[in-house]
Design a protein around this nucleic acid. Sequence first.
DNA 1: TCTGGGGTCCTAGGACCC
DNA 2: TCTGGGGTCCTAGGACCC
Length: 415
Amino acid sequence: MDVVALVDCNSFYASCERVFRPDLNGRPIIVLSNNDGCVVARSAEAKALGIQMGVPAFQIEGEIRRHKIAVFSSNYTLYADMSRRVMETLRQFSPEIEIYSIDESFLKLDRTQDLLAIGESIRSTVRKWTGVPVSVGFGPTKALAKLANRLSKKSAGVMELTTREQQDEALATTAVSDVWGIGAASTNKLLRYGIKTARDLRDADDVWVRKLLTVVGLKLVHELRGIPAIDWEETVSPKKGICCSRSFGESVTTLEGLQQALATYVSRAAEKLRRQNSLANVVTIFFHSNPFNGDEPYQRSGVIAFPTPTATTNEMIRFVSDAAAKLYKPGTRLKKAGVILTGIVENSNCQLSLFYERDRQHDTALMSALDKINDRFGSRTMRFGAEGIDPKWAAKFEKKSPRYTTRWDELIEVL
DNA sequence: TCTGGGGTCCTAGGACCC
DNA sequence: TCTGGGGTCCTAGGACCC
């Protein structure tokens, strides 16, 4: 008989920063989103100060100074590498592992084992091998493991919800809004009918739930009852949409700037596309003004179908730049732009066109050379001129820590 | 002055077909 | 007075997640 464990890294980004800065032990830490915009991670000390997830950094400048909060820009290279280390460590405990996000994994374990002891062992091993603190929740389903994990963070860091009694108590004391999969919209609907706790939801009528929350909600209710309804996905399936979008460090006010930004984003998206061995049929571009600063709202988007499926960056840049020129209105201040690749197909089953010819072999060779160079010497070592050189619109990361684990020249120094 | 980014899944409704 | 029925496919939009 199986049991599901959910292992979740505590305050992941903040914890990654602390691993390399032991001087920050006990100090509140926050990590900011792109452009040093919003708070996306908070250490336990920062949470205790009442710093909310998602608040704009400029709104809490006073608190930051008063409490000497350590502030970091996002260092995705570091977090991705630390995540890989944590996940590799978790494989020691079960061959059946589903990496759910950068800081969470589901593991399948044998129910006959002493779960609390296993949980402790996971915590101490990951801590010792990577420096990252984790919490562990056990349950018969993913939703219950998730809930157990949530509750574990308020106590010893390990919690199991495997018996009916444990579940009854935990569900009764959990607000329905705290259930995994129940967001603001569903919470409002449920509260209107007097469903306040996770236990109320678990005990609701199937037909009624399906009508109110569709099959997604019904699956969730089954999970809360201990009946697995959410699939186990160990293999990463290829993405069906690949998006790359960014807010600008400085407003873009020219077509040229917009085209550079879009070229940069489509390059990144194409890179991801090639990495999963796919081609795209369609690219959507979008851009808009700043919705916060009182500027006239302005937004445009366009959908471009490629003549044949492609993963060739320079080909994409041409289509994207042409479309941008058609959509762009001079005299606007743009804050954000992005591209989305869709209509994604496997590289092997690609429908060619009779009337559109490109030297596909040449394209493939060029892209493969480009990817190899960037893999070896670092991302964006070689790129297209259309992306611009050191552009002003590029996002700001003014408080970024070194890439301690992935760059020889940024290794930690012990003096 | 300063407000993130990248995904998945489901449903409703329209277009189109026989 | 009478005005079919049953499908598929696509898209936009909503909801949710980390």
